[in-house]
C-alpha cells in the first residue's frame, strides 16, 4: 500500500519566472472591454463631436452649438425635452406608490399571493410594442373598451391618445401598468428580507398597521426603494417603445419624448441634430440620475 503512493514524483521544478503571474489575469477583462469599448464607448465619445456638426454619415461640417440651440428654440424639440422629464417623473412616482402598495398587499396574509404576484409581474415580460398596440386599441376614443366601460358608468371618456394635452399622460399610464410589476417584485424582495422580529417587537409595543409600515417597512426597505427609483427613473428618461407604438409622438409633436425625437431626426436624415438629441439625453440622465444615485446611496451608508 505504501509503495504505490509514497514514491514522490512531483519534484519542485526550476523557477520559471521572476514574478509569479496572478491567478486572476487582467486579460480576462479584455474581450468584454473590446466589445463594450468599440460599440458603446467610442460612439458615445464620437457623439460629442458629431452633435456639433451637420452630418450625412459620409461627411460632416462643423456648425458649433447650432444643433443644441435648435433644441431649445424649436417648440417641437422643447416639447420633447419637457415631455421626457414629465414622463420620467410621473412614471417613477406612480411605480413607487403602486409598487409599494402592491408589495405590502402581496406580502400580507392574503390568499393566492403567488398567483397575484405572477399576474402583476407578467406584463414586464410581454413585448412592449405589443402592449402599446393593445392599449392603443383599448384607448380608441369611440370604440375602445376603456371608454366603453366608462360609458357604462355614464362617463364620457376623453380621447386618450388623440387629445394633445392628454396623450403623453396616457402613454405614461400604460408604462406604469407595464412596469409596476417589476417595482412590486423588487419591493417584495426588500420587504421579505426585513427580519420578522422588528414587526413582532412593534406589535408588542402596540404599533398600528400604519405605524408599522411607516416606521419599519418604509425605512428598512430602503435599498429596494433606491433600486426602484433609479431603475424606473432612468427607464422613463430613455423610454421609446411605448411612445412609438402608441402615438408616434403625436398628435403633432404633443407626445414626443427625446428618444422619439432622436429617431425622427435620424429618419429625416438630420444625423447631427439626432446626435445632439442623444447628447441632451446623456446630460439629462447625468444631471438627474447620477446625483440621485449618489444621494440615495450615501444616505443609506450613513444609516
Amino acid at each position: 500500500m505504501t509503495t504505490t503512493v509514497s514514491t514522490p514524483i512531483a519534484v519542485p521544478a526550476k523557477p520559471r519566472h521572476r514574478r509569479r503571474s496572478s491567478p486572476y489575469p487582467t486579460w480576462f477583462l479584455l474581450p468584454a472591454a473590446i466589445v463594450y469599448g468599440i460599440l458603446f464607448l467610442i460612439p458615445t465619445f464620437a457623439s460629442l463631436y458629431f452633435s456639433l456638426t451637420r452630418w450625412t454619415l459620409f461627411n460632416s461640417s462643423f456648425i458649433g452649438l447650432d444643433n443644441f440651440v435648435a433644441f431649445f428654440e424649436e417648440p417641437f424639440l422643447i416639447q420633447g425635452v419637457v415631455n421626457t422629464i414629465i414622463f420620467a417623473l410621473l412614471t417613477c412616482a406612480l411605480k413607487v406608490v403602486f409598487g409599494l402598495g402592491l408589495a405590502v398587499l402581496l406580502t400580507s396574509q392574503i390568499h393566492a399571493r403567488g398567483l397575484l404576484r405572477s399576474v402583476v409581474f407578467f406584463p414586464v415580460l410581454v413585448s412592449t410594442v405589443g402592449v402599446g398596440i393593445a392599449f392603443t386599441a383599448m384607448m380608441h376614443p369611440t370604440d375602445g373598451i376603456i371608454n366603453a366601460g366608462l360609458g357604462l358608468l355614464g362617463i364620457k371618456g376623453p380621447g386618450w391618445l388623440t387629445n394633445p394635452s392628454l396623450a403623453i399622460y396616457s402613454v405614461a399610464f400604460v408604462e406604469v401598468w407595464r412596469g409596476v410589476g417589476l417595482a412590486t417584485v423588487i419591493f417584495i424582495a426588500g420587504i421579505v428580507s426585513i427580519p420578522q422580529d422588528y414587526y413582532e417587537a412593534a406589535r408588542i409595543d402596540g404599533a398600528t398597521g400604519w405605524e408599522r409600515f411607516v416606521y419599519i417597512t418604509l425605512p428598512l426597505s430602503r435599498p429596494a426603494m433606491v433600486t426602484v427609483v433609479i431603475l424606473s427613473f432612468i427607464h422613463g428618461l430613455r423610454n421609446f417603445e411605448l411612445v412609438w407604438a402608441m402615438t408616434r409622438g403625436g398628435p403633432g409633436f404633443a407626445s414626443d419624448v427625446l428618444a422619439s425625437v432622436i429617431y425622427k431626426q435620424y429618419q429625416a436624415g438630420f444625423y447631427g441634430l439626432s446626435t445632439a438629441g442623444n447628447v441632451v439625453l446623456f446630460v439629462l440622465i447625468a444631471a438627474m440620475a447620477v446625483p440621485l444615485y449618489l444621494y440615495l446611496n450615501r444616505k443609506e451608508g450613513h444609516q
Binding site: A10, P12, A13, P15, R18
Partner: peptide, 26 residues
C-alpha cells in the same frame, strides 16, 4: 505559494521557491 513572500528566502529541497508556482513546488 498562495501568498507572495515579501522578503527572505524559501528553499524546498535545494530550490529557491520564492517565485515558483504552487503547482511546481511539490
Amino acid at each position: 505559494g498562495l501568498e507572495e513572500i515579501t522578503a527572505g528566502s524559501l528553499h524546498i529541497g535545494n530550490v529557491l521557491c520564492n517565485d515558483v508556482e504552487p503547482r511546481d513546488r511539490g
